[in-house]
């Protein structure tokens, strides 16, 4: 197989498999958003949905991860019926892009390649992505769309970002290791 160039790595192939993979990713995102939160306090949910774009990104690239994340969010809004809050959907999309960058720094879950080095890069990118998505993009859109008190808006957005970082590192890294281990070819197995 020939090496893909950077643009292809970022955009993804968008063949039928990519379309289906992104759709399944968006569906999983929606399901986890609506059904699969971890209750922290009565009202705050730590959603595990953010882990899905990581997997979509690992398999298909960052732009597919972005699409899965954005539409997963829109779909969750449609199922839940609580309305569309595009300031958050856009932030999620941006974050989806960042956490989906895995193929660009050499991690390949399909072939079982995910090392400590990749984990460190992943953690850094997750923090950076959240800082940008929920420290800048979402609060700016919130202020642009709805106005509001500056400190509270940033604080709320950053809380969402921080909980994402928590989920992405505490759950995401073990998940990536587990998936990579599962896909690594198992040779030289001997019955004992």
């Amino acid at each position: 197989m020939q090496k893909k160039n950077l643009a292809q790595l970022i955009l993804g192939d968008w063949n039928t498999k990519t379309v289906v993979g992104v759709a399944i990713g968006a569906a999983l995102f929606g399901v986890l958003m609506v059904y699969g939160g971890v209750k922290v306090f009565t009202n705050t949910n730590l959603t595990t949905a953010m882990l899905i774009p990581v997997i979509v990104g690992a398999l298909f690239g960052p732009v597919p991860a972005l699409v899965a994340c954005f539409f997963g969010n829109v779909i969750a809004d449609l199922i839940g019926g609580w309305g569309f809050w595009f300031d958050w959907s856009i932030g999620n999309g941006v974050l989806g892009f960042f956490v989906g960058l895995l193929p660009l720094y050499g991690a390949d879950i399909n072939k079982g390649v995910f090392t400590v080095k990749h984990a460190v890069i992943f953690a850094l990118v997750a923090i950076l992505g959240n800082a940008l998505a929920f420290g800048v993009v979402t609060p700016l859109f919130t202020l642009l769309f709805f106005g509001g008190e500056l400190n509270i808006t940033f604080l709320q957005s950053l809380t969402g970002g921080a909980s994402n970082v928590l989920v992405l590192t505490v759950l995401g890294i073990p998940l990536l290791f587990a998936l990579a281990k599962r896909n690594a070819s198992s040779q030289n197995l001997v019955k004992e």
């Binding site: 379309v19 992104v22 399944i24 999983l28 399901v31 699409v67 997963g72 779909i75």
Partner: peptide, 13 residues
């Protein structure tokens, strides 16, 4: 992506 995701959401749920 949108229509296919909706199709499989109940199965995944």
């Amino acid at each position: 992506v949108v229509s296919l995701a909706f199709r499989y959401i109940p199965d995944i749920a």
